[in-house]
Amino acid sequence: MSAEIREAVRTFILNHILRRPNYKLGDDDSLIKGGLMDSFSLVEVQLFIEETYGFRPDDVDMTVEKMDTVRMIADYVAARC
């Protein structure tokens, strides 16, 4: 389950945020602190989770501390699905 979610999150980020489908994005690559995406993009991640997994992450969870890697985002989703 977690692996599937990780792939879905990665695909979303590569296609819709980075718009670089071939970028080698690792599970633990820092997205915001690593300078790959800015914190504005977390709103898109939040909408993606809402549409794909049917629940809306709490606004206070949409932070760098909680959502800075593919794994962190996927684990967050997995814990609530």
Binding site: K24, D29, I32, K33, G34, G35, L36, M37, D38
Partner: peptide, 20 residues
């Protein structure tokens, strides 16, 4: 080269708050 690009992005973000 991939690693160079990764480092450039990260250092720029950490030092200037800019996302390339």
């Amino acid at each position: 080269r991939f690693e160079i690009a990764r480092q450039v992005r990260m250092r720029v973000a950490q030092e200037t708050d800019v996302t390339l």
